[in-house]
Simulated assay, not measured.
Amino acid sequence: MNSTTQKLSFTVNLSFEAHSIAQELVSKISNQKKRQQIYLNSLAVFAVNHYLLCMGFETDYLEGDSRNPVAVQLMNVADLIVKDIGKLECIPILAETEVVEIPPEVWEDRVGYIFVELNDSLKEANILGFIPKARDKVFLSKLNSLEDFLVYLTELEVVESVQAETTSHVISFRQWWDGVIDTSWQKVEQLLNPQQLGLAYRSNMSLITRGQKIDLGMHLDQISVALVMKVMSESDSEEVDILTQVYPVGEMALPEGIKLIIGDETGEGSEVVSREDDNWIQSEFSAESGERFSITVAYGDSEVKKEFEV
């Protein structure tokens, strides 16, 4: 282990409580290899939970799959839910380990992966560092520091708080038609370059066209996209046609896996997912006066949800 990682580690004593929890999870498992996997995973989660509480973060220690006796038998899982942030995966490692492979079943639905070195006696755990996204092989000498980890979590916490406030605000198309439009909704020419506009705006603009920049992910892997709304209505109709699109900001193609999700008041909806080299994605639908719907743009564990009313 290099000196940088050692300097940034945080030591947790693995108490009788830590081992009691692990022992309870493996008590009905006969396969020795599976017992060891679950036991070490449990100790790693316990250590990270203690560390985060010391650092001032709240957790849902009891709610993760890592505390579910059935889930741990079916999967190699060591998740810890951090309140208002998301799931961390706690990766246990033994002394002298240099390279780690992350289990494929935990590559999704995680805000980060934190690595925990357990000593030979399993009485101490050292929190070493983290990575924000899973990859095939992780070299422990290349981990991001715990200092970066705390900054990363703090930024995610701020983003979740801002998004919660945004979600509670319903955007009214009636106000848009009256000329009252929040300044965060810009004209698309201000958000997208001429080449992008040419892809889908060759014809005349609709009655109202506005866009808003959305940041998905923070600190180490920030993705910026533009959510564009085209609202079309005929004077003698109660029905409104809505075209919603997602474009990359600063790039010509979207990352693969960007989701555009439309939801109605009943909870039903539709989803479009970007493929490799997609220049934009879109969904077109109609809504009646007074109807509410939501639009969610998501990428990995990050998502932004907007509520609208016709």
Rank of each mutant, 00 (worst) to 15 (best):
4 T>F: 08
6 Q>F: 10
6 Q>L: 14
11 T>Y: 09
13 N>E: 15
14 L>R: 03
14 L>M: 02
17 E>G: 02
18 A>E: 09
21 I>Y: 07
28 K>W: 06
28 K>H: 05
30 S>T: 12
33 K>E: 14
35 R>C: 11
35 R>S: 11
38 I>C: 07
40 L>R: 15
43 L>C: 12
44 A>L: 14
45 V>N: 07
46 F>C: 09
46 F>P: 10
46 F>D: 08
47 A>Q: 13
49 N>Q: 09
51 Y>R: 07
53 L>P: 01
56 G>T: 13
59 T>H: 07
60 D>L: 11
61 Y>A: 05
62 L>E: 15
64 G>T: 05
67 R>D: 10
71 A>K: 15
74 L>Y: 13
74 L>W: 12
76 N>Q: 15
77 V>I: 15
79 D>P: 11
81 I>G: 00
84 D>C: 08
84 D>Q: 07
86 G>C: 07
86 G>H: 04
93 I>K: 00
95 A>D: 13
96 E>A: 12
98 E>G: 01
99 V>L: 13
100 V>R: 03
101 E>I: 14
101 E>H: 14
101 E>F: 13
102 I>T: 09
103 P>A: 13
105 E>M: 14
108 E>L: 12
112 G>Y: 09
112 G>I: 08
115 F>K: 13
119 N>I: 07
124 E>A: 07
126 N>H: 13
126 N>P: 00
127 I>E: 06
129 G>A: 14
136 D>N: 10
137 K>C: 11
140 L>A: 12
141 S>R: 15
141 S>A: 12
143 L>N: 07
147 E>A: 03
151 V>C: 04
160 E>S: 10
165 E>L: 07
172 S>V: 08
174 R>T: 13
174 R>C: 09
177 W>I: 11
177 W>Y: 10
177 W>N: 07
178 D>K: 14
179 G>Q: 11
180 V>F: 10
180 V>S: 11
182 D>F: 08
185 W>A: 02
187 K>L: 10
199 L>P: 06
201 Y>Q: 10
202 R>W: 08
205 M>P: 08
205 M>S: 11
207 L>G: 08
208 I>T: 04
208 I>F: 06
210 R>P: 03
210 R>T: 08
211 G>H: 00
212 Q>S: 05
214 I>W: 01
215 D>S: 04
215 D>P: 00
219 H>D: 00
220 L>I: 03
221 D>V: 04
222 Q>H: 03
224 S>W: 01
228 V>Q: 04
229 M>F: 05
232 M>S: 11
233 S>T: 08
234 E>Q: 14
236 D>E: 10
239 E>Q: 12
242 I>N: 07
247 Y>R: 03
251 E>W: 04
252 M>K: 02
253 A>E: 14
255 P>K: 05
259 K>V: 05
261 I>S: 00
265 E>R: 02
266 T>D: 06
267 G>E: 00
271 E>Q: 02
272 V>S: 04
277 D>G: 02
280 W>R: 00
280 W>S: 04
280 W>L: 13
281 I>Y: 01
281 I>P: 01
283 S>R: 01
285 F>L: 03
286 S>M: 12
288 E>Y: 09
288 E>M: 15
289 S>L: 15
293 F>K: 02
293 F>D: 04
293 F>I: 05
295 I>G: 04
298 A>E: 05
301 D>E: 11
304 V>M: 10
304 V>E: 05
304 V>F: 06
305 K>V: 02
307 E>K: 04
307 E>L: 10
309 E>P: 00
